[in-house]
Nucleic acid binder design. Structure first.
Lengths: 353, 353
DNA sequence: CAGCTGAACGTTAGCGCTAACGTCGGCATG
DNA sequence: CATGCCGACGTTAGCGCTAACGTTCAGCTG
């Protein structure tokens, strides 16, 4: 049994016959050490199984090459994002720690950032809610990048273009000839949800389609809410021929309700989602949806954060990344109720650009 | 602009008119401080917005009240587990940090544990693979609890009873009268996958049903592998009437394949999954599956870890938690090809024990 | 060859905290 | 009243590291 499992830098230095600082410089790849000595030290450190103590490193005011992510991990959306960030961070020789935010809970949030501040060099906050978190983040003495946080944010942020994405989804349905298009909204505490809703209304207005409040049903991004919303829509005297759901999960909820009602997707009702979660291309029907550029968001946010950590004063940069409409099976051109229309409609369908 | 954003314990002590140690004792709720003084100090610390520096705390050899979890976060299974652990940890006034393991990557793993060791008081490793991680874990000077790590593990572990779960799934199918039962395996690098496979073979043997190698198809827990495996099974001259998939995801893959082949679940083929992921009760058909006791696993693992952290030498405890068969829509009693059999079969079904 | 320069080191003083050991009274005991 | 003891504090010495300054010495210059 060894006296101490992990050697300290001092011990490495002693074995290598140099001073503490020389060893530190060698290991941190800093100038001021001759090449031979550096190699020596690195070899010895390796042999001894030396690993820097990041707590000590941080305490003495240095970088730890750790970034932290704060996120609610309960959706495929966030966990994929986190996975992507991890890969980007590792590629930049950073480690990444995740703080999993309790779902739908509001605790004194400052403590988390205080905690992470003591460990990490920077923090990415994936926090779609406009919550009080922001205030505490402001006071945190550490670089912070937010994801999905709307225009309000005072710091650098990375976000997908939810508004444009919503527009493209709506336009797609309109181009397919749909006129009665419903919207199943998301949780309006989220900027992203509001942007999608706004897109729905705007495109409707611009296409000179009537806005029917009955067609806009409140949801909360959950499968269940999609299911219930669709049931409401199906109960309407003049039910919609297409539904735009604010996310994929609720879109599948809606599809389940439609099927239970004995109708088919897209035969009777076309459905568009949002996010392009992985199973959207696997589940039946494969979902037409708006893809969020997850990988790009991960890359952009980490790179932005690392730039801030490096001291490059990116002055409150806001990065908006484009979304992309992915057309799959869940949407088709409108087949009118009156068969007679069928022929003309196809011909009359608006240009598919 | 303040001189320093965060006050140190020394500053709090000075303001409170006490020594550093008295302040420390008061804040850490340790004896040796008079009640009035303690209250005083706590109030002042609060007013000054004091937060302990965990890096310093850890460096000086104390507890940080942080635990860490190492996991591959890409499945609902693991992320739900992590969520549950977070809740349990918080309830015990611990914070929890997650290290998201790169998927299917093998990096020098020690570094992660070394990193976490410097921050956390203990680590939970959710690592179904029997990988080299173990070796490095062994040498980590920190309490470690593993999840899902088979019998090999030298340290405390918490796991679901995969073998018994597999047995109950198989027995369920046999009780329903099925005789040709296929198995879509999981990734055999996982102990859990191997246990489920073993259960399949054992129950088959005990029920004196013939073991047909064609009915055991290799999968890897992915939806795609389930899909492909089912296609293989459907192509058999004498196709199975029931399928036991090693997890829910691949079960749904199999269901998709069955449907594409124009058959129905459970009408033509019954399907059982494993895990009971949240959507198993929502997707159509609702899946008969074996529920992993996620909440209990989370609770048990965190509690075990905290016990170890507290110094209670739980000598390499192995906790195995029971699984539970959840019967839903995807399985039904066999409708024999020869109608005549129907009556006798029910009667001849093995005892339901 | 004095004087300077700069690279290659070494030394010192913390970062913020806690363990371990003082100190100092008050109070009970013989 | 000396002794012992205990609770309430204070002091000191680190934990492992790095920033900021020393120091040393080879090599160059005029």
């Amino acid at each position: 049994m060894m006296k101490r499992q992990y050697p300290t830098l001092a011990e490495v230095a002693k074995v290598a016959g140099v001073s503490l600082m020389t060893a530190s410089r060698a290991i941190n790849n800093r100038p001021g050490v001759s090449p031979e000595k550096r190699e020596d030290i690195l070899r010895i450190a390796d042999e001894m199984g030396y690993v820097v103590n990041r707590a000590a490193q941080k305490l003495s005011g240095a970088r730890t090459r750790i970034i932290a992510v704060v996120a609610e991990l309960h959706t495929p959306f966030t966990s994929d994002l986190v996975l992507g960030m991890g890969a980007v961070a590792r590629a930049a020789d950073y480690e990444m720690l995740v703080y999993s935010l309790p779902v739908c809970d509001r605790r004194p949030p400052g403590s988390i950032l205080d905690l992470l501040r003591q460990i990490a060099d920077g923090v990415i906050v994936i926090l779609p809610y406009e919550s009080d978190y922001l205030e505490s983040v402001v006071s945190a003495h550490i670089p912070v990048v937010t994801i999905e946080q709307g225009a309000i944010s005072a710091f650098p942020s990375v976000t997908a273009d939810n508004y444009q994405g919503g527009r493209s989804a709506l336009q797609h349905l309109i181009e397919l000839g749909h006129r009665r298009i419903a919207f199943i909204s998301g949780n309006d505490r989220l900027t992203s949800a509001r942007d999608r809703r706004r897109a729905y209304r705007d495109v409707l207005a611009q296409a000179r389609l009537p806005y029917d409040p009955d067609l806009e049903v409140t949801g909360d991004f959950s499968r269940k809410s999609g299911f219930e919303a669709a049931n409401k829509l199906l109960a309407l005297p003049d039910r919609p021929t297409a539904i735009f759901a604010a996310n994929d999960i609720s879109a599948y909820g809606a599809i389940a309700a439609i099927r239970e009602a004995g109708l088919s997707v897209p035969g009777d009702i076309s459905v568009v989602g949002f996010d392009d979660i992985p199973i959207a291309s696997q589940l039946h029907p494969q979902l037409t949806t708006v893809r969020q550029p997850l990988q790009q968001m991960a890359r952009a946010s980490v790179n932005l954060l690392l730039a801030l950590v490096a001291g490059l004063d990116a002055p409150s940069e806001q990065i908006v990344l484009p979304t992309q409409l992915i057309v799959r099976e869940s949407t088709v051109a409108l087949r009118g109720r009156r068969r007679a229309d069928a022929a003309t409609r196809t011909a009359a369908a608006p240009s598919l650009r």
